[in-house]
Simulated assay, not measured.
Amino acid sequence: MSASMRTLVRPAVLRTRRGRLIYWSVFAVALVLFTAAFIVPLYWAATGAMKSPSELAQTPPTYLPEVWHPENYAKAWREMDLARYFLNTVVLAGGAWLVQLVVQVPAAYALSKLRPRFGNVILGLMLLTLMMPATALLVPVYLTVVDVPLFNRNLINSPSAVWLPAAANAFNIYILKNFFDRIPDELLEAAKIDGAGPLRTMWRVVLPLSRPILAVVSILSIVTAWKDFLWPLLVLPDPAQQPLSVFLQRVAQDTPLNSLVAGLVMASLPLIALFLVFQRQIIAGLGAGSLKG
């Protein structure tokens, strides 16, 4: 270990038996607590859906179902017609993801590499929206989708009402720009010498090098759109157009509790699977700091 490296625990302390015991004890306790904080709610929901309504509502709760009812999942899927609302959610999340990449990647590339006049001012105004409460932006954004400027179109009950506002995500543009800033300008100059224009350079040079951060932005976009509740509730009043998050809240009062919990579990499974499949890309993208070569 380098002498200049600073850590929370001195190497000399870790070399002692007492120091190692305290260190690993604290580490084990922290690991167990954090794991429990994430796993226990998932376990409680997954097993709660397999209980009867009376057992699920009883106090004190049971840790394991007295009688297992795994058929509650199939019953909830069939009786609540969840396939339709899963499809609605996939359409909204997939469209929001695609629109965000189409808008945010060129915007971040322009701010980072094309360096337009007043680019820093534009970026500052974008970041200013992150300091504002989300509820403060609801009314102006809602008025915009009710009467889109220049086009005079009403987007209510259209997926576009979810897709287009999602593109205005200052956080994604900021992290994309930061990553693009670390791409050596020499690579872009070489592409320019070979006759590539700005768009071709972005497509052929910048995007292949940006796969880790594009994966992070994609996953953040999909997760945000998938679990969003308030905005789809406002712009999609037609029940046939609503995603899972809005539908499950709308039918909560008239649905048996175990069926509702089963629906919530099934609505969460795609996001859990997405993280498990792409966790390596997420960590690589969040830790991407520089390019070698």
Rank of each mutant, 00 (worst) to 15 (best):
V217E: 03
R15M: 10
A252T: 11
P256H: 09
A110L: 05
I193W: 11
T224G: 12
P256C: 12
A45I: 06
E71T: 08
L33H: 05
D147Y: 10
A45R: 05
T135D: 14
V139T: 14
L199P: 10
W231R: 01
L92H: 01
Q104S: 07
L233F: 09
A74M: 05
F38S: 14
W24K: 07
G293P: 10
S259T: 11
V67E: 15
A96P: 01
A36M: 13
S54L: 14
G19C: 14
V141K: 00
V29L: 13
R153G: 02
F278H: 04
A37Q: 12
A215N: 03
Q242A: 10
V141S: 01
I283D: 04
L233C: 01
N178M: 02
G287W: 00
R117S: 10
M126F: 15
A28E: 04
V223M: 13
M80K: 06
G287I: 05
L286Q: 01
S259D: 13
D81A: 12
F171K: 04
I219T: 02
K227A: 08
P149S: 01
L125V: 14
F247Q: 15
Q279Y: 08
R200E: 09
F34K: 06
A134Y: 08
L199R: 13
I122K: 07
L214C: 07
W163D: 00
P165K: 00
R280K: 15
P208V: 06
A240I: 13
A273W: 05
A166C: 00
R115M: 03
S4V: 08
A96R: 00
